[in-house]
Design a protein around this nucleic acid. Structure first.
Lengths: 206, 206
DNA sequence: AACTATTTTAACCAAATGGTTAAATTAATA
DNA sequence: TATTAATTTAACCATTTGGTTAAAATAGTT
């Protein structure tokens, strides 16, 4: 693969990523991807034979990048509270840079649930629970976190960080009337969510 | 407007609602709406002159119905904890019946943020903050809830109830590997979220 | 029965879209 | 320089899609 070929393929991939995230699979146009990549439609099909294949390539890589970003949560040597903060910080930083990405992923996964399985396929999931239990067994016991409550807690944490970006237009519209600024709200989000979550967990101690 | 006309218009509206929620504005096809309504395309345009107008009608009514459903939160004579539970219960019941609706709304609002403003336009928002402060002034003081933390708390509550349905395919895929069942998880969601939220708020008391 | 409104049929249109093709051109390489 | 690969140009195609039209048929009303 020559240097030029790599450049072109990268240019196409980046343009496709932008357009797909902005417009979704249905709304995206091959012509627009070609335009943004600074090439023509013929060359676009020269590299990626179809819209479907191009989309699959984009989606797979994006999803894997996101997963990789949060892997440290499972091997960092942190307390439970530090780990919660670390996750909120990572997720928020990431979405500040790519605010439209979460909605894009939720959408396309909803349109084709099989995609999740393809991405998770190569992940060693069997150990995740064990790892968490080994690292935080004492805290889990103290706060009565078991296989029934852990999913509730984990989805709550994901929800608290992701939802504000997914519902941004609605939240902004309401905030506007309340005199609240969205960016300031986001700046305080990591601190608030960490305290909120950890307090809720701590209060489970009898 | 005759009885038959009403029936037809209703049939069209319901079919359009289903298709738009399933496929979104971009993915929806006028032919499919006509088919599901049991009529033909010509008649469809006889009632709604364009896809755009049909979509606007559907979206506006759906959004207003959702808003109306949560209005009682502001006038029910309940404690803060009861009110939180009431909201979670309403929202969850609603989404159990229309699981695809939240993602649909988030999507279309993201594609056209102006829509939120049109829906909120006719709402008396100025009083909402005052009403809450009058009803729960003592609790707000005790738990140090002010104009800065209230938005954080409210978005957290919305997030905890809505997100599981929006991210259902992802959550299901992960749960499958963890041996957790999504429906059981949802059955326990209202209780968990209420306790989680209220404990987090209570712990703000020094 | 006469009249009006609703619904169907069916053909049609223009625009957009994903995709193809072949030939010419330019750049890279041996 | 000869050859190969990358890129452009530009015309083309089939299909889909939102939308239109006109005439016939059906139902509802007076």
């Amino acid at each position: 693969m020559t240097e030029l070929e790599k450049q072109t393929e990268e240019k196409i991939f980046e343009a496709a990523t932008d357009v797909f995230i902005e417009k979704g699979m249905d709304g995206a146009r091959m012509q627009e991807i070609a335009d943004r990549a600074g090439i023509n439609k013929a060359l676009l099909h020269y590299y990626y034979r179809s819209k479907e294949k191009l989309f699959d390539a984009v989606f797979t890589i994006i999803a894997k990048q996101m997963l990789k970003r949060f892997a440290p949560v499972f091997d960092e040597n942190l307390t439970l509270e530090e780990k919660i903060r670390f996750y909120y910080q990572q997720q928020t930083d990431f979405m500040k840079r790519s605010p439209r990405l979460p909605l894009f992923i939720l959408n396309e996964v909803s349109r084709n649930p099989q995609r999740v399985k393809n991405v998770l396929k190569h992940m060693d999931h069997t150990n995740l629970l064990k790892i968490l239990e080994e690292q935080h067994g004492d805290e889990f016991a103290r706060y009565k976190i078991n296989r029934e409550t852990l999913p509730q807690i984990m989805t709550s944490i994901a929800a608290m960080s992701i939802f504000p970006f997914v519902a941004k237009p609605i939240i902004e519209a309401i905030f506007e009337k309340f005199g609240t600024n969205f960016n300031e709200y986001i700046e305080r989000r990591v601190d608030f969510a960490t305290a909120f979550t950890y307090n809720a967990i701590k209060s489970r101690e009898k």
